[in-house]
């Protein structure tokens, strides 16, 4: 397997799907000549032309609404939303229109569109360009939510998203675009199915259940625990909707202890939903309180020193894990 960047993996996925299916096209702000501010889409307009890689005006509600309409007429649009924070501008198009069409038409209509956007703090982008809003989208029935954690995941999940007949929002970690990792050769097509979590490490003492950017944190925390003589299951959730409960519950039933990590704000976030399902369905296997680790409930600070404090990191994950394993956490 070759090693390419996350950005290249996304680019390849889009190019392969554009070649495979003439109804697929992409639009968004600065996607064609500029190739997005993160240079993810560089070279696509040269191959596929301005009819399929389309620059839009700066009007998120407009081009997302148009994509919903295009999807209803039989195409498969990929929409590029430059920052996840701009989701707030497209809530009606996404939640009231895209998410509801299939249900309200008794299944006669479908909206096979993909909304690509991003998440992640610690890029010094301040409060309006650093949010991780996946829980907001996952709350709305009718939308699927994918959270790739590596170049390979990015490619495999995006290709599955393009082929899905439901609206899918895929969040890419903007800090990960230049990260490299193994990805299968283009001729070995890999589609990563939705609703199948990925167990990356196997251990006995604790389960670390993580999404997107936090998968790397969980993996390094598991290394830290190994140095202390403990082992952890590391589970990449992959998709919040649909959620692979079975893999998560099986792991927690084995270890009896769990930390759920997600870079969204902790309160009412993805960690809350997963923790609740664990408490509900694996209660009698728990040997320690179900623990969550999300971002602080504050706007993401611009100050680097403060910003780094607000998101979960390896050291604090290890510290919390050790407290759970040693029985030092009591919330009675």
């Amino acid at each position: 397997m070759r090693t390419i960047t996350f950005s290249q993996a996304v680019n390849e996925a889009i190019a392969e799907e554009l070649r495979r299916d003439p109804t697929v096209f992409l639009w968004g702000e600065d996607v064609a000549e500029a190739g997005t501010p993160f240079k993810v889409l560089s070279g696509l307009v040269e191959e596929f032309g301005p009819e399929r890689i389309i620059d839009t005006p700066i009007s998120e509600p407009g081009f997302v609404g148009m994509a919903v309409g295009a999807a209803l007429t039989g195409t498969r649009p990929i929409v590029d939303l430059m920052f996840g924070d701009f989701l707030f501008l497209v809530m009606d198009q996404l939640c009231n229109q895209a998410a509801k069409q299939s249900y309200m038409s008794g299944g006669k209509l479908k909206v096979p569109m993909v909304l690509r956007t991003n998440l992640g703090a610690t890029r010094r982008s301040a409060a309006q360009h650093s949010q991780s809003l996946q829980a907001l989208v996952a709350h709305i029935p009718g939308l699927k939510v994918a959270l790739p954690s590596s170049p390979r995941e990015a490619k495999g999940l995006l290709k599955s998203a393009v082929r899905d007949d439901n609206p899918v929002v895929i969040f890419e970690d903007k800090l990960m675009y230049q990260a490299k990792g193994p990805v299968p050769e283009p001729e070995e097509e890999e589609l990563i199915p939705f609703g199948q979590a990925n167990r990356l490490q196997e251990g006995e003492d604790l389960s670390l259940v993580a999404t997107s950017s936090m998968v790397q944190v969980a993996e390094e925390a598991a290394e830290g625990l190994r140095a202390e003589g403990y082992s952890a299951d590391v589970i990449d959730v992959r998709t919040l909707v649909p959620l692979d409960e079975d893999t998560i519950l099986a792991s927690v039933r084995k270890t009896g202890r769990v930390i759920v990590l997600d870079e969204g704000h902790q309160s009412y976030g993805a960690t809350a939903e997963i923790a609740s399902r664990i408490a509900d369905k694996a209660f009698y296997h728990l040997d320690a309180p179900v623990t969550r680790f999300g971002a602080w409930d504050v706007p993401v600070p611009f100050s680097p020193a403060l910003e780094d404090q607000t998101v979960p990191d390896v050291a604090r994950t290890v510290e919390r894990a050790l407290q759970l394993i040693r029985g030092e956490v009591a919330r009675a």
Partner: peptide
């Protein structure tokens, strides 16, 4: 853990 104690109840994990 402080030695928290509730009369008539033993604090123990579900497991």
């Amino acid at each position: 853990t402080p030695p928290a104690s509730f009369p008539g109840r033993v604090l123990a994990s579900p497991k």
